[in-house]
Design a protein around this nucleic acid. Structure first.
Length: 104
DNA sequence: TGGTTGACGGTGG
DNA sequence: TCCACCGCCAACC
């Protein structure tokens, strides 16, 4: 089990809780981790994750934008589309409705 | 121990 | 609606 006291672990746990077909913003994940203003660090942490343990592809930037994902935004988009998330160009359709908040 | 980085968010123009 | 600047926090070197 991971050390829950570490912000990184809390962020990873929060991301794992994101159900398929849903997305969360870095801010939402940070908030779920207990630090609503740590979205900056969340991005940093995600960079380290991306191994398969965490569905980091469900974490997108605010406004429905994809974000980075190591530059493979196309793959990220494909993964989300496979889960039922509709896209409008580089942005998520009905992002507000697809957005998942911790505790929902 | 200190400084820099970074898959960002929000506001202003 | 798009572009640019500033602010923020944790991890890494």
């Amino acid at each position: 089990m991971v050390d829950d006291s570490r912000f990184t672990a809390r962020v990873m746990s929060a991301v794992r809780r994101i159900p398929p077909g849903r997305v969360s913003t870095y801010g939402d994940v940070a908030e779920a981790a207990g630090k609503p203003r740590a979205w900056r660090a969340v991005g940093n942490i995600m960079r380290s994750c991306s191994r398969g343990d965490v569905p980091c592809h469900r974490v997108v930037a605010a406004g429905g934008q994809l974000g980075g994902y190591g530059g493979n935004t196309a793959m990220k988009r494909a993964l989300l589309q496979a889960e039922g998330v509709l896209f409008s160009g580089t942005r998520i359709r009905d992002f507000r409705l697809k957005r998942w908040l911790a505790g929902e």
